[in-house]
């Protein structure tokens, strides 16, 4: 066998995308630290060139379409395991993409946030591979545990599909707040950074959803008011980290009452940030 020396098409595209990034973005991408498992990928599939490609491909949405503004990025820990817990909405996970880009742009030192995907996503063709190369991970407990043990920064939407699939009338109302992120935070000593995304809840008004329609394992089919998402302005607010290490031991992750109380604390912090963000913004598109 003769090894191919010519870079693949994907590698060439990624290299061009990296070169085309503005200097500040490129510096962030090039200073990313990741655990290379041997061939330029980490064990979970992250590939820095694809991160650069993703940044270049989605930068238009971040800078021009949703015109993201953010505050509190200094609350993102510079190293070690940590969890960003955010509200979730918008029919498609643009909120996750914008948080991803914002963390990439503003974290010091530069970090890639690892969005934790719903269990059906790794079964989607193309999407699963692209997301994995960007750093997203499947939501199985074992993978998430491994990522935290490796000191990764995770992005979790505790509302899950109930959040992204909520109707327009339920905007900015936090749905059932799952507790898994807090269990993990307590067990692995990871601080939880509450995050509020303002704007995404109005980006693509959903008037109803068909729970009986499942395409490619997607749990429902949304009925949306507009053919494309609206160019709302995103505001991302990072709150002060909630650190359970002083109050709770890793064993407390098995205590449902303590876990529920801790999750309620995170939910309240996110709700407070949402209220702050809504009060401060001047309009949906401004």
């Amino acid at each position: 066998m003769v090894a191919s020396t010519r870079p693949s098409l994907a590698a060439r595209i990624a290299a061009r995308a990296r070169a085309a990034l503005p200097l500040d973005w490129r510096e962030q991408v090039e200073s990313l630290r990741y655990a290379d498992a041997g061939h330029g990928f980490d064990s979970l599939g992250l590939h820095p060139d694809t991160v650069a490609f993703g940044a270049q491909a989605l930068r238009f949405l971040y800078e021009r379409y949703f015109r993201v503004r953010s505050s509190g990025a200094e609350n993102i820990p510079g190293e070690g395991p940590a969890i960003l817990a955010s509200n979730h909405s918008g029919a498609l996970p643009f909120d996750g993409a914008m948080i991803y880009l914002d963390v990439l742009r503003k974290s010091r030192p530069a970090r890639v946030v690892r969005p934790v995907l719903d269990l059906f996503v790794p079964g989607l063709p193309f999407v699963s591979t692209f997301f994995a190369r960007l750093g997203a991970i499947g939501g199985s407990r074992g993978t998430v545990r491994y990522a935290l043990e490796q000191g990764e920064l995770l992005l979790i939407f505790p509302e899950g599909t109930e959040g992204i699939g909520k109707n327009f009338s339920q905007r900015y109302q936090l749905q059932r707040w799952r507790v898994g992120h807090v269990e993990l935070a307590i067990r692995y000593g990871a601080p939880v950074v509450p995050v509020a995304v303002i704007g995404a809840e109005e980006q693509w008004p959903q008037i109803a959803r068909l729970d009986s329609v499942h395409v490619l394992g997607i749990p429902y089919l949304p009925l949306l008011l507009t053919p494309l998402p609206l160019p709302v302005r995103y505001h991302i607010l990072y709150g002060e980290p909630v650190d359970f290490r002083g109050r709770l031991t890793p064993q407390d992750a098995d205590d449902p009452e303590k876990v529920a109380a801790a999750a309620a604390q995170v939910k309240a912090a996110v709700a407070e940030l949402i209220a702050k963000g809504l009060a401060e913004r001047e309009g949906i598109f401004r």
Binding site: L44, F120, G123, R141, G142
Partner: peptide, 12 residues
């Protein structure tokens, strides 16, 4: 499978 960990420990 899709819904199991991609990093496999001995309890997988």
């Amino acid at each position: 499978v899709a819904d199991k960990p991609s990093v496999i420990d001995e309890e997988h």
